[in-house]
């Protein structure tokens, strides 16, 4: 058994927690080689994770932009040495790994939440309303790991770092620009506390009260699809079946009704608090603690008390 883990890297930035969580998920399978492909990336933090046998480091602008055509070509060039090709289930990996799997003529298995064995995996289907256990009959397993349920792999003695040549690259697609929102708040999928707002928040301006509570708790800000569609919050804050999946210690849902698509993204949180003026809102069915009240009174009051 030999595992190739694709580190989540955008430009020079390594999403270390996402990569470390995927690593702890797959480490029981055997020695893990990490592919660190980026643009100006320092792979040393990856080499210092427990369970890493080796880091392969490669540089290229297309890799930094996570362009699927060039990136899958790169993975293909080293794939024959591995039985498992895995990555944390990020937006980039979701674009790249199915492409890799098709080129290897194997079926990709996305959003794996549990590895039962080297060939048997659990994943949620139907927006998390069912869990399926599947056994792959393919010679190479290509997986994306839903990291929310795994702990970060701890630090260890540094593994060797080896340079790899980039492959030719592809001109099928070109990067134009990133429109990325800079934030000082913790990253949504790995934050210990998430405060999220729904349609009930009412406007982009009102979202400030969600942000204020989040800042008090050093939390990330999330949003329901309704809030994102209404323009109250940017798309990268969306929690749910098609957005981000989070499992923080504390999830505070403010003015979120709790459509099944939203619940799919947060129902594995350890403690869920719901604040909503509608006592019938489905969010209360998954909440540990509920406040049936006006969020515009309760949220600032909560912020004040927790300061």
């Amino acid at each position: 058994m030999s595992v190739l883990l694709i580190a989540e890297i955008s430009g020079a930035y390594i999403a270390l927690s996402a990569t470390a969580k995927a690593l702890s998920a797959v480490a029981p399978l055997g020695p893990v080689t990490i592919l660190a492909a980026g643009d100006g990336v320092d792979p040393a933090p990856l080499a210092a994770l427990d369970g890493v046998a080796k880091v392969l480091h490669v540089e290229g602008a297309d890799y930094g932009h996570q362009m699927p055509e060039s990136f899958s070509e790169l993975i293909l060039s080293i794939a024959p040495n591995f039985t498992h090709i895995v990555a944390p289930a990020t937006a980039a990996a979701k674009a790249i790994l199915p492409r890799v799997a098709a080129l290897l003529d194997v079926m990709v298995i996305t959003d794996v939440t549990k590895l039962e064995s080297a060939d048997t995996f659990e994943r949620p289907i139907y927006a998390g309303n069912a869990t399926q256990s599947v056994t792959s009959t393919d010679p190479i397993k290509v997986l994306t790991i839903r990291t929310a349920g795994f702990d970060d792999a701890p630090a260890a003695a540094a593994a060797p770092i080896e340079g790899v040549d980039p492959t030719t690259g592809s001109d099928l697609s070109n990067w134009v620009e990133d429109r990325v929102v800079k934030t000082d708040r913790p990253e949504l999928t790995s934050a210990g506390v998430v405060v999220s707002g729904g349609r009930g928040v009412g406007s982009e301006e009102n979202f400030a009260i969600i942000g204020a509570l989040a800042d008090t708790l050093n939390a990330a800000v999330g949003a329901s699809r309704a809030a994102v569609d209404s323009g109250y919050a940017p798309n990268d804050m969306q929690v749910g079946q098609t957005g981000k999946v989070v499992a923080p210690d504390l999830y505070i849902a403010c003015g979120v009704s709790g459509a099944i698509q939203h619940l799919a993204g947060m129902k594995d949180s350890k403690v869920i608090v719901a604040i909503n003026c509608d006592a019938e809102a489905p969010i209360f069915q998954v909440a540990d603690y509920g406040l049936v009240t006006d969020l515009f009174e309760a949220v600032p009051a909560l912020t004040e008390q927790l300061k």
Partner: peptide, 19 residues
């Protein structure tokens, strides 16, 4: 290529309390 072993409902969360 994938053999489906089981399809189960995820564990339900216990009912919470309204404060």
């Amino acid at each position: 290529r994938l053999v489906i072993n089981t399809t189960v409902e995820p564990p339900a969360r216990a009912a919470g309390e309204i404060l």
